[in-house]
Design a protein around this nucleic acid. Structure first.
Lengths: 166, 166
DNA sequence: CACAGTTGGTTGAGCCCTCAACATGACCGT
DNA sequence: ACGGTCATGTTGAGGGCTCAACCAACTGTG
């Protein structure tokens, strides 16, 4: 780890723009959703995943994988969503350890209510500032980063199996 | 707000890639810095900002602006950094409300210790997967998003002055 | 069958962030 | 000088996330 490959000035510039833009964008979306939808962004995504699943139902672990979330985080999240009446837990008959998370109609309604302004916020803050070419470039760039990330997470898992965050 | 401008399939794809990639990347960097540097990413950036300032000293509000952070967050952060012995507060003689945050030598040492592996992580996860053209494109894209974000934050400030997060 | 190891899921402590409320000092018009 | 307004910074409550520990149930192997 000696001989650090430091960032060049240009790379430093890109990195700082990236860090600033993504964190501002994230904060912006989070705040909007909290204000107008009454939920954090992660919970919104949980509701989206459930709404797209057959029967609006998913196993807890499938839900965690779908959202790249740790099981612990999801467990806390579903606990709160259940307290809100937006999600219901059901026991799994074939695997008694398992649990299903079911989107309630109140949960679906909350999602429908929150969606339009959320989408508008995403469009305004992410797509409107970019040209069509840039949108396409961004898609490829993010796909490349994801592709690189997943294997390195698996590698981390092998050398340190306690890691829960991948 | 009726007539929502929903996302096209392509846009939806880009958005999901973007959300997934940035949150994985952020989690990755955060975890690495916490593990090997003993500090969260935001605190690292506070130390960076101070290390680059003349006299390694900044007013609290300058520090908050530099990191796009709320004053409250920074106040909590500096409290903890001070408890770690990495930052020291000093009273401002010309403006008795104000406070300076000063990076201690222990804080500088902690920063120097954390920097190499952090930079290596950024390089591996952000730059290595991208071609030089993509890095350049990413820089322009993020600059465009930032440029669009700042005015919209100012607009939000005008209609709702209590907002602290911009 | 028995038992070790693995998987699914939950829990609680600790940490960081946000939001609202507050205290204090600066500034400005009269 | 003085009262209203603004700016700086702090505090505490509440919420979300991580990490480690844990329980319960499934699975494979001898």
């Amino acid at each position: 780890m000696s001989d650090t490959r430091w960032l060049s000035d240009e790379e430093q510039d890109v990195w700082r723009n990236f860090a600033a833009a993504t964190s501002m964008l994230q904060a912006h979306i989070e705040a909007q959703l909290q204000r107008e939808g009454g939920m954090p962004h992660t919970y919104y995504e949980v509701l989206v995943a459930l709404s797209e699943a057959p029967g609006r139902t998913l196993r807890m672990s499938e839900l965690a994988d779908a959202r790249f979330s740790s099981r612990s985080r999801l467990s806390h999240a579903v606990a709160r969503l259940e307290a809100n009446g937006w999600v219901r837990r059901e026991a799994c008959p074939t695997d008694k350890r398992g649990a299903w998370a079911v989107l309630t109609s109140a949960g679906f309604a909350a999602l429908e209510a929150a969606a339009p302004s959320h989408v508008e916020t995403v469009r305004q803050s992410l797509f409107d500032p970019l040209s069509p070419e840039q949108v396409e470039q961004l898609g490829e760039i993010m796909a490349a980063i994801r592709a690189k990330m997943s294997p390195s997470c698996e590698a981390a898992m092998e050398e340190c199996p306690s890691t829960q965050s991948c």
